[in-house]
């Protein structure tokens, strides 16, 4: 990200307001102690560390946050959330940011991870359960790396770790219905205050 010589926080910070409402987490309270980053197992791979994500949100550097790889690399291991002395659930903030990129159609900061989550959801939508061989194959296709992980396949197939056929549930229609209704609800309550009424 580019850091201007003098950071003048914009008067309105729409992303900060959205994220605080959507996640229910008081991001503005973060005092930059850095415990989240110190404990984060993926911080070394991130463009913005978790602490920097929080600061960028406070400063209104919305595009930098939404385009960062950090929000995708977060493994949701929750070490940041349980160590935060101000009890801010940082992992939940990361989830809300990912959700926001979906709504905004922002170009994800880590395409491979964003695509993987999409493929994973697609498999659940179709079969009601995860079909691992299908997940791996489809993920290779959409990420245009058809030969990725291929070395692992023979041993896993031999050990019976990758069933060829999906374990499909009977009530696939019910699961599809869940997806559909969630999408409809999220559209209806696209303003965060509606979606997060009550303390979430």
């Amino acid at each position: 990200m580019t850091i201007p010589d003098v950071i003048r926080p914009p008067l309105s910070r729409p992303l900060l307001i959205f994220i605080e409402a959507h996640s229910g987490q008081p991001v503005s309270r973060c005092n930059q102690c850095g415990k989240c980053t110190a404990g984060c197992p993926a911080a070394w791979a991130m463009d913005l560390t978790p602490r920097q994500v929080m600061r960028a949100l406070q400063l209104g550097l919305d595009n930098d946050v939404l385009a960062s790889s950090a929000i995708w690399l977060c493994l949701s291991c929750q070490i940041c959330s349980v160590r935060c002395p101000l009890e801010i659930d940082v992992a939940k903030v990361m989830h809300s940011l990912r959700h926001r990129t979906q709504e905004d159609k922002t170009h994800p900061g880590d395409k491979n991870i964003a695509r993987f989550h999409g493929v994973f959801r697609g498999i659940i939508h179709r079969y009601g359960r995860i079909y691992e061989l299908g997940l791996a194959g489809l993920n290779n296709m959409v990420s245009r790396r058809p030969w990725a992980h291929l070395k692992l396949f023979p041993a896993m197939l031999r050990k019976g770790k990758l069933p060829m056929r999906p374990s499909r549930i009977k009530a696939t229609a019910e699961v599809k219905n869940i997806f559909q209704k969630v999408a409809a609800l999220e559209e209806r309550f696209s303003t965060p205050s509606e979606l997060t009424k009550g303390d979430r």
Binding site: R98, H99, Q102, F116, V182
Partner: peptide, 9 residues
């Protein structure tokens, strides 16, 4: 993956 993209899902 579900929770990542949609908390409600």
């Amino acid at each position: 993956s579900a929770a990542s993209l949609s908390p409600l899902l």
